[in-house]
Design a protein around this nucleic acid. Structure first.
Lengths: 205, 205
DNA sequence: GTCTATACACCGATAGAC
DNA sequence: GTCTATCGGTGTATAGAC
């Protein structure tokens, strides 16, 4: 009976290659647009021929799928250990949380398109890739409940409104702040409606 | 000196053909998805070969452009003569206006994607096609001002939030009402923030 | 297992005959 | 104005070298 190595070096290398391919895909997406990602362009960036990618991903949509999961996981990592640094005031805490999402989404257009819009037709995230986005939503619900907004509908409305602000920002004023600067006002309005304690984030006009 | 006919029959026929092509493009978009529209599929539907479309549109993006303008014009027509039938209560009037937009956007996914999202990369609407969407926004601002919301920022926030609701509806619960049913609550919250007179659309929890 | 070479069917677009 | 023929590109599939 031979001893098994305690690390599977082959699997590690495989995982490295997969990550390298995904990095290349992100780079191409940022340069040429999310749906202008081509297997040939990705392959060239990692020093391969296009068909070789099929040794690591079973299709182009599988690459999109992995990118989708990667993006949400990255955001999840960023907010997971944030409980300690949340402000005490409920509205400020809400703003802080949502602002991290807005910042994350406005920093990278193809990432936002992949995470929040259904830009790539024929692509629907697999349950596995969808999981981290559900965890984000769950975490958000838990924190909102702790702040005094226990209702799922409230969180849905807030999430949809924030997504709408980011989308409008990218669509109508890319690089500017015309829409996303309205986030504090949106939170105040909703918080008032929910009966969340003050103080208000913005002065009333 | 020969008399000119008072109608340019040739131009009329040309316009008819253009409209026929656009109708076919919408049909393909609804069947196969907005970005799976191919010139060959559109041409087949109108009984042509693909290259013949170039006699009527200078590129595929020009077809998208015309569709974009068509969609917004259609919505503009629908709401232009609505002043008379608006409810008297400000919040009800606001809800009525926004509900027409939500209904219009939830009725047809490719149309919504073309109007509100930037799904087709490399496509940006021409100034000419963009005009009717600006007229819709202008009309909306005018009516909101008449209802007591004269500030551009308020209208921006409301528009972005409504767009977010529709997008979340299509992305996470297509065919359902989970998000769009929150419209009255969203309006109440914003209206309270703006100091718009009641009565409220929804009972407070 | 990993990669290359090659092929296929499709895409948007153009040239030129009629 | 519509056609055929064709171009360079695409995603995808498979055979086979190593």
């Amino acid at each position: 009976m031979t001893a098994l190595p305690n690390r599977d070096r082959r699997a590690e290398r495989r995982e490295d290659t997969r990550r390298e391919i995904l990095d290349a895909a992100w780079a191409v997406a940022r340069q040429d647009g999310l749906e202008n990602v081509t297997l040939r362009a990705v392959a060239e960036r990692v020093g391969m021929r296009a068909p070789s990618l099929y040794s690591h991903f079973e299709s182009k949509n599988a690459i999109y799928d992995a990118m989708f999961g990667q993006a949400w996981s990255e955001y999840l990592d960023q907010i997971e250990d944030l409980d300690a640094s949340l402000p005490a005031a409920p509205r400020k805490a809400l703003l802080f949380m949502l602002q991290t999402f807005v910042d994350f989404c406005t920093a990278d257009l193809p990432r936002f398109q992949l995470m929040n819009l259904r830009v790539v037709t024929g692509f629907a995230p697999s349950p596995e890739a969808y999981a981290p986005s559900l965890r984000v939503m769950e975490l958000f619900r838990r924190r909102a409940a702790a702040l005094g907004a226990p209702n799922d509908e409230d969180v849905d409305l807030l999430a949809a409104a924030v997504g709408g602000l980011v989308d409008a920002q990218w669509s109508n004023d890319p690089g500017g702040t015309r829409y996303i600067r309205l986030l504090p006002r949106a939170i105040d309005a909703l918080a008032d409606d929910l009966g969340l304690p003050g103080p208000k984030l913005r002065r009333k006009r």
